[in-house]
Design a protein around this nucleic acid. Structure first.
Lengths: 217, 217
DNA sequence: GTCTATAATCAGATAGAC
DNA sequence: GTCTATCTGATTATAGAC
């Protein structure tokens, strides 16, 4: 090996070594993204209990043991999917025009969650499973995202109440919970199963009953 | 054995035999009622998937094998609980005063279902489980009850729409599904967990958002 | 890190004595 | 019909070679 080759090697090492690490990290991240996508779809389709780790591995196209190298438990798979969902939600909140009124923002968010659910991309978790809850509250990415989203929605709710557009007699926390609950509303699937309406019509219907109620105005 | 004893025996047989069958049937029915009560509570507390047949047997105080003499599968346990719920619902519908306006009837029904849920007596089933669905649709008691309840609620909905009290632009089926969905609304548990309101206040809150919406009126 | 193979556990359902 | 004991299958998780 000549001196010039040595120099070239050194130069390559200086640049390629970090580049190779980055590439490996990219591959790792890409695989984990694929896993999370698969988990998300399965959670939306059949829920946490009915989803099996074998299915996840099969859908991703890797062995189950490889899955456990990335995520230490089934609960962590679900937590990662929920954290990803929170990331999507924050991105959507960011995408709303700066001059959009608070009430319209809230409607837009609920519209987005309903569309996600009808698209089969809204993961649903049991609210009673205690080991799952424990994993979720320890997942800082998820919890940070959830709190950020809640804070921002809470501000919009209070602003809309101050404008007299949302019923000021309702506790803001009750409004927030109602919005979250509408993201998982089974009425969406029921109406789709009835086969009488398009997805867009279903969303308008349920969005309308959420904000305007069943009674006439 | 004397003739008189024979006569007594015959008389006892004529009366006691049917009485004994009735008694046995009563005991059987009482035990099955106890089973259904236990299933109902467990379904309300942890849902179908998390409920185990061992738990049901333990709560009733009998062996698991005995349980399977009464009900052939876990799905049939859930179906029996749902049929029982439909029976309760029909009794409640019957109990409403004959002169009560349609809209008030609907509100009363939703109030009743929410109270049941907060009391921990509203069984909740996954809407995706296909083998469970198959068992449910084959259970004629349950299906008859469900259809009767739906028919009667449907009439009240259309009457309230004809009076202009419920939004006539909404398909009646969408209103019906919404009322059913509010019986399982997770907002009830969320609000209770927040610890800020009494059960009565929670029901009024959620009942209000259901019929009046989140927006101001 | 990925794989095959396997451990360990749990839950639904049943056999067979009484 | 009720019991104890067991079967059967599915599922989470891991060991160990490469």
């Amino acid at each position: 090996m000549t001196d010039s080759n040595a120099l070239v090697s050194a130069a390559l090492a200086a640049t390629a070594a970090p580049a190779k690490v980055s590439f490996k990290k990219q591959m790792l991240q890409a695989r984990e993204d694929a896993i999370i996508r698969a988990v998300n779809l399965l959670l939306a389709e059949k829920g946490f209990e009915a989803m099996t780790v074998d299915e996840v591995a099969a859908n991703v196209g890797i062995a189950k043991a490889s899955l456990y190298k990335h995520f230490p438990s089934k609960e962590d798979l679900a937590a990662a999917a929920m954290a990803h969902l929170m990331g999507q939600a924050r991105a959507f909140l960011d995408s709303l025009p700066g001059d959009m009124p608070s009430l319209q923002r809230l409607r837009a968010v609920v519209h987005w969650t309903m569309a996600l659910k009808l698209a089969g991309e809204m993961p649903s978790l049991p609210s009673q499973n205690s080991t799952l809850r424990a994993t979720l509250v320890k997942h800082t990415d998820y919890m940070d995202g959830l709190m950020d989203v809640s804070d921002r929605l809470g501000e919009w709710i209070e602003a809309a109440q101050a404008q007299g557009l949302i019923n000021p007699a309702l506790p803001a926390i009750a409004v927030l919970y109602t919005l979250y609950a509408r993201a998982c509303d089974p009425v969406l699937e029921f109406l789709r199963m009835s086969g009488q309406h398009s997805d867009a019509e279903i969303i308008e219907l349920v969005l309308g009953t959420c904000f305007d109620g069943l009674n006439s105005r």
